[in-house]
């Protein structure tokens, strides 16, 4: 017999699954409530996006599930945007939640970018959640998070 004979109707697992399904990246995206955020990480996010309230979705991330070498982790970010003068992505910010410092990089785009797709290689000290924020020209901010396992840490070695 289960500890909860009728099931726990609001168990975290189920709620998290629903949130993840709504975001549309069931396999790899971590729901908002579970992402690790220390004060440093929160401060870094506020520095970059101010008081905007980010909404999950609208960003797709291509990352390895496990990074063999944390010193060189390939990341591709694609933001859903027409990239016109009226509606474009102004900035894409990458934040590390369990590195010695949270800053990774910020891409400042313009309509001349044509496409809100960028890629780079990043350092990760240990298994952690990568946060990505996309600031749109109308002031709205989208957010995505993905957990990446790290075989050999890439910050202090």
């Amino acid at each position: 017999m289960s500890e909860y004979p009728n099931g726990a109707p609001l168990s975290l697992d189920r709620r998290d699954m629903l949130v993840a399904a709504a975001v549309g990246f069931v396999a790899s995206i971590i729901p908002l409530a579970k992402a690790t955020t220390s004060d440093d990480v929160d401060a870094a996010i506020r520095d970059l996006i101010g008081n905007a309230t980010p909404r999950d979705g609208g960003i797709s991330l291509q990352v390895p599930e496990t990074a063999e070498n944390g010193a060189v982790v390939p990341v591709t970010v694609v933001v859903d945007s027409p990239m016109t003068a009226e509606h474009h992505v102004r900035a894409i910010h990458l934040i590390a939640t369990r590195n010695p410092t949270p800053g990774i990089a910020s891409f400042r785009l313009s309509p001349a970018s044509g496409k809100a797709e960028v890629a780079m290689r990043i350092r990760l000290a240990e298994k952690q959640t990568l946060l990505v924020f996309a600031e749109h020209s109308d002031g709205t901010v989208n957010r995505a998070a993905v957990e990446i396992k790290v075989s050999v840490g890439g910050c202090l070695t």
Partner: peptide, 19 residues
């Protein structure tokens, strides 16, 4: 076209792709 602010966790030999 693009400006990138690079911080501590940008890998050595920065490799950047954009459009």
């Amino acid at each position: 076209v693009v400006q990138v602010d690079l911080r501590n966790a940008t890998s050595a030999n920065p490799y950047l792709v954009f459009h």
